[in-house]
Design a protein around this nucleic acid. Sequence first.
DNA 1: AACTCGGGGGT
DNA 2: ACCCCAGAGTT
Length: 370
Amino acid sequence: MHPKTAFSEDVALNMLRSDLHRWYLEHERPLPWREKPEPYGTWLCEVIMQQTRIDQGTAYWERFMHRWPNFQALANASVDEVLKEWQGLGYYSRARNLHKAAQIISEEFPNGYPQEMNQWLALPGVGTYTAAAICSICFETPVAAVDGNVLRVLSRFLGIHEPIDRPSGRKPLETFAQAWVDPKNPGRHNQAIMELGALTCTPNAPDCASCPLQKKCASSFMPHKKGSLPPFKQGKIKVQDVALQFHVIVHNGLVLMNKRPDSGVWGGLWAFPTSEKPGLPAAETDQPPASLNERLISRGPCGTPVKHLLSHRRLHVQFWLWLLPENESLDWGEWHTWESAMELALPRVLESCWTDVKNSAEQKESKTVA
DNA sequence: AACTCGGGGGT
DNA sequence: ACCCCAGAGTT
């Protein structure tokens, strides 16, 4: 590369930086973790906000900060407590990894914390984006934090029409992002691009007129038709139908709850014992697996079937009531009162169906006695 | 490189 | 119905 070219590129980059930074000083949202940035709150924020809107995650951040204000406090919590506080936020491996990472940090950095990219990257739940965000914001490490906002802003700015979810499209964006990072103020720079993506260079109907990068943006003067603007993606999500059955097993007023395995949906959360099969349910209320009849007394459907949407699955959820015979026992999980079961970390779909299922189960159970 | 993993909001 | 969101881990 010719020195002269490098020089003029450098000048151009500097001008873009100052334009962006001026814009950010005016438009920065007053988010709570920006008041007094420190590693714990920043790390917690970045993990909570993974694939999550600020509007949705902010209340969770506030509650976590209040309940567990530092690495040690979080490390001393139980994973069930952390998952309960995480309930409803989704991607529950984040909560389990958060807890695990807090224990690692409090053990390996007593009264301290990691300060380098590689140390953060070694922690569970911390990937390239999160490590870069933490280190640039807290330690002024000159690394680009490339998230969905940045990919959108830069793909439009550079006019990248290659799919951003594969190397051909992603590589030039990361290269430019890294070259553009302000070595003197990387944290503010990274947050400024993300803020621009969140407020102005939005997924649809970007407000180019008020964008500080407009004059040099490859897309601002292109027609903003619905699918004509970067970013483009290759990946297509195939949503599958799944018939899922929750087995509500009751005995002496108690209900059986299972802790779900870490792998799979709702990992680490508690739920009724579950059976599922691909496809749509054959009927409004499918017959349960025959094997359950061997030890349990079937009392039939319970509560109202519901459809529950996940990003890659359409769950058709049904509940089935069972009674455990007197003098029989079951070691599939834990017996809870309906009240104590509700204190467990539950999937959203159970949270929203809870009263309906409980009422239906109690009604059918008492009818049996009579 | 392709999957998996939630839930909520927008159009 | 489809898209996206302050992505990471596994296969």
